[in-house]
Write a protein that binds this DNA or RNA. Structure first.
Lengths: 202, 202
DNA sequence: GTACTAACGGGATATTTGTACCATTAACAG
DNA sequence: CTGTTAATGGTACAAATATCCCGTTAGTAC
């Protein structure tokens, strides 16, 4: 677990970046297929067409690899919708999250990532940052609704956005109930109703 | 990974049960401390004062051990409160869940269990059953509220109960935001408001 | 209490997983 | 284009992890 001084920092040119991309991609595939339990770094190296030693040296452990994968994912920001109505905006968000978590590759991948985060503090922080970014993107929807007078003053926008995702993640990770379209609609509607009632006023 | 024909079935007397209890207890301790990543069965065996071979033979892997632990936990039912008011009932539920997840041993343990469930189908089913049981215990609160006319006819009681837990689990596993008392109150209040508005009508 | 055998426990063994070494490759500077 | 060296990749090695074997222990039946 001895962390080398961040390879790619002093010589970030072609090969290093190419290796990183190949390994992260292979790691994503492997995680989606076997989860973080059935994952060994040797297999990742083979899939990526990269030496075993390289993977062990640069990442060293599954959680560390996942942490890097997360940083990569956080950089690829997804565009936010703007419909002019809070309900429609949050419905769009709910459907986006639902589609991601119900996706045959993305769903298992997110499960595996969250599992890895429970094993390692560093990975957990990377995960928190990831959601920090994701949530921040949708905060303006809520803030605009406050400005329009749709929601009470002092509403905690982050809390409203979190409320939309929470039921979907609960199903994915805990209850195992199906992640259908109806769930997305309910979670968005519930968040709006609760926010209007002032539940999320600080 | 060859599963022997369920030890304890043909001879469930003293020792076998004692060994199981000791191992499950030790596994819980170890999981709470190191998470499911930093857990090895040899260590569990030592803590339990049991032979390494026994643990490998009866459970064979971390997820299988967790699955058994879950079955054990599901059997110890927790008493439900009855206050005569939907909000108070759900507040009690929210506080119970929050206290569990914020507990220095139980919180990490639940994290580890959920992580293990993402690695193994069998464990995932055990986890789903666990929440099936837990949720069912609180369903009557909501049904009584429907009977009292506090909530609209056709309200999906299970969905309301899930709505209370979801934000707490989301924090525990994904966002990493603190699990304070205020969060519990908000999630209960939000669930009530949404249910009253008919969001959870089938 | 005696016989029977499921289940356990310790040690030897096999397998899988992680590390150390060093020659080779290719990014970057001049 | 040429030299320098960060980074890679193969091989040999070490450590941890899982399985096998077999004598011992202790539930259960009679």
């Amino acid at each position: 677990m001895v962390l080398v001084g961040e390879p790619g920092g002093t010589r970030p040119g072609g090969r290093t970046a190419r290796v990183r991309a190949a390994v992260l991609s292979a790691a994503g595939d492997a995680l989606a297929e076997s989860g973080m339990g059935g994952l060994d770094l040797t297999d990742v190296a083979r899939r990526a067409g990269v030496g075993r030693t390289t993977v062990y040296r640069r990442w060293g452990s599954v959680p560390a690899l996942v942490a890097d994968l997360l940083q990569d994912m956080a950089e690829q920001s997804q565009p936010r919708v703007e419909t002019g109505s809070l309900l429609k905006d949050l419905l769009a968000n709910a459907r986006l999250v639902r589609d991601t978590l119900a996706h045959p590759r993305q769903g298992p991948l997110f499960k595996a990532i969250i599992a890895a985060a429970t094993c390692d503090e560093r990975t957990a922080r990377a995960l928190n940052r990831f959601y920090e970014v994701r949530i921040s993107e949708w905060v303006p929807c809520v803030e605009q609704a406050v400005e329009r007078g749709e929601l009470p003053e002092g509403t905690d926008a982050r809390e409203v956005v979190r409320a939309v995702s929470a039921p979907l993640y609960y199903r994915l990770l805990a209850s195992g109930d199906p992640l259908d379209e109806a769930v997305a609609e309910r979670s968005a509607r519930a968040a709006v109703v609760a926010a209007r009632a002032g539940v999320h006023v600080r």
